[in-house]
Design a protein around this nucleic acid. Structure first.
Lengths: 208, 208, 208, 208
DNA sequence: GATGAATGAGTGTTCATTCAT
DNA sequence: GATGAATGAACACTCATTCAT
């Protein structure tokens, strides 16, 4: 009959017992599965709770509302993507620009490879919340940092264009479910795109 | 969006009278306004009907369901974008590759410039319906056609990368509401991106 | 996922068809019955809709929320009480002060006589909404007007004490479900209370 | 408030240790504070437990359910009011009828003076439980006893009218949050009301 | 063709209460 | 005795859609 509002907080309760940690994990995993199986339309708090094997009340003990759950999921997914990218780069001996660009592109593609639908839904949901790509920030920032190892100083517009062109193309391939998504050919073209753009910047920079 | 499923048909009734045509137009315009003002959350069939000044029953006389309305709106917007792109190219004397690329980029940007929120919402909604960019196909196809005027034959992956890189970056700027969205600098970088990629293809093609 | 707020309005839709008018009446009647039968605890919007024989959606087509329904009910009840009081006075030939006071007291008591529980619940609910007795204002104002026919000018505190003493006592009898509620003896004491207070005011006024 | 019914018992466990006594006290104080700060809407068992610094489980160790907590609170408040009334009378040398009536009225008013919101909420809640004024009984009984020191024997209806008229008027002032609530003028009128009524009874009694 | 009253499945969310630890 | 994670019935409310008029 009345609802006092609070500031948006992702988690309502910090789990202090071991059991609680498992519960949160189960809920997030269930959320990802629901999203994967039925997209955003099937993503209801009741459905998530049921699949997680917990009561709806328990879900709300850890997540303030539906959006908080979505945000937490997005963060988890993005964190995982970041780890993959970093790992891919660390394990690669090829320190050339192309080597690094390729490793990054590949890591992002493979990060989007599993559970495409879930990721798609998460992306959509995040956008719908108006949170923009900021939530995906870590990955974008990571991409943005790479050119700094070159002698080229990028403007913010150039960083934006480079990172969004690569990620936007990958995202389009995911969303459109393109068959060549994981092919070597596609990867090659993305690498070419990034290198060509960086190369054109270097020439200009040198020229001036 | 709930209820019994039927074959997806955009329009339930083809308007044959002038009055009916006006009604459809009014509904679509109302839909765009609602979307612009309140985003997807405010986009309810009742709200659209009310703003259009028709009864909810009348709305359903022309649109099978909410999604059909959204699809029709997307088509209208895309058609308009296409007209702008074509017009921009026709009116420009600069027939060089850069001239054409720039005109295209500018047309797309300006197409997204008005009613950003509405367009954002439409894009989200279209994606949510799983229709992918196919609905945006005409524009993508248009972009894809341009390189053919060069001596370069593009593979489908290359067409995809080129078109999605440009559109994806623009879309990201829209969705993230970047301040430099309509700046000349941003436009320059997009042009550079496209030209650099095309240039890298030419070299390779020539080489082989 | 989001809820735009609106100003509190009692009715959401003004019924324009005959059918709608009946529906509103049925809903209010059902609300009164539910309240009468089970008190505030049983008063759920779903229960009211079901008893009214309409869908929950229809209820919300006419009442913005649960409180709006309660407010509408309170107004209806208070209006009815007012009519009874006015009618009681008009039909009585005894124009003496005691005659008028007695008629008023009797009308109020009998107004509270039917559907006591419903009235009790309405009163509680109105108070819980923080609307205070203002909603019951018409009756209180009516009471307040009576002494003006005497030669006594009452201060606002005196009007308050007189009206609330009478109504408060009656209300207490209702809420406590006192057995003597409708007895002549109880009525006599209320009349005595009002007359004694008025009399004490007159003496003072005269004196000064 | 839902769930299986049991016999109404206020306290589930009688605290025998000092620590337990403090716990009960802390819970009641927390309950009063919550009520004062946020009204009945904010009064949840979890909120009370949290503010009291005990776990929800502990709260339920001492109070069978939410209503029991409310009842205990009402009793505590009423007891405190009673003490004030008694103290006010004992310390007053003016043993005249008016002196005693005035002291009583003043004590009740001041009892309602602090933490008005909490008291208002308690009153509402008690009424909502259908417990009526019986819980407030001690005070009413106390009031009722006063006239016995006179030579007037009151009927139960007269006791009821006298006590409820005074308390009802004060309660109305609290609930309506009247600005003159603590003014001398208001107190005067209440005293006048009580004396006038008592006086009218004496005359009648004497006459017959 | 148009209307708009009516529908009702479905959603997010709360909170009193229990019980294993 | 104390804890707090878990429960789940219950509720208010929305909105796409239908169909009698």
């Amino acid at each position: 009959m009345a609802r006092p509002r609070q500031l948006p907080e992702i988690k309502r309760r910090i789990p202090r017992q071991a059991r609680a940690g498992e519960t949160v994990g189960a809920i997030l995993e269930a959320a990802a599965q629901i999203l994967e199986a039925g997209g955003l339309a099937a993503f209801t708090t009741n459905a998530v709770a049921e699949r997680a094997g917990v009561s709806i009340g328990t879900l709300y003990q850890y997540f303030a509302d539906k959006n908080a759950l979505l945000r937490a999921l997005a963060e988890r997914e993005m964190q995982a993507a970041l780890v993959r990218v970093a790992a891919a780069m660390a394990g690669d001996g090829d320190a050339s620009l192309e080597g690094r660009v390729r490793a990054t592109v590949r890591a992002i593609i493979s990060a989007f490879g599993g559970r495409q639908r879930a990721r798609k839904a998460v992306v959509q949901a995040i956008l719908a919340q108006g949170l923009g790509i900021e939530t995906m920030g870590p990955v974008a920032a990571f991409i943005a940092r790479q050119p700094q190892t070159m002698k080229v100083a990028l403007t913010r517009e150039q960083v934006f264009v480079l990172s969004r062109a690569v990620m936007g193309t990958i995202r389009a391939a995911v969303l459109e479910e393109q068959p060549f998504f994981k092919s070597r050919v596609f990867e090659d073209e993305l690498v070419r795109l990034a290198l060509a753009y960086l190369d054109s910047l270097k020439q200009i920079t040198v020229r001036e």
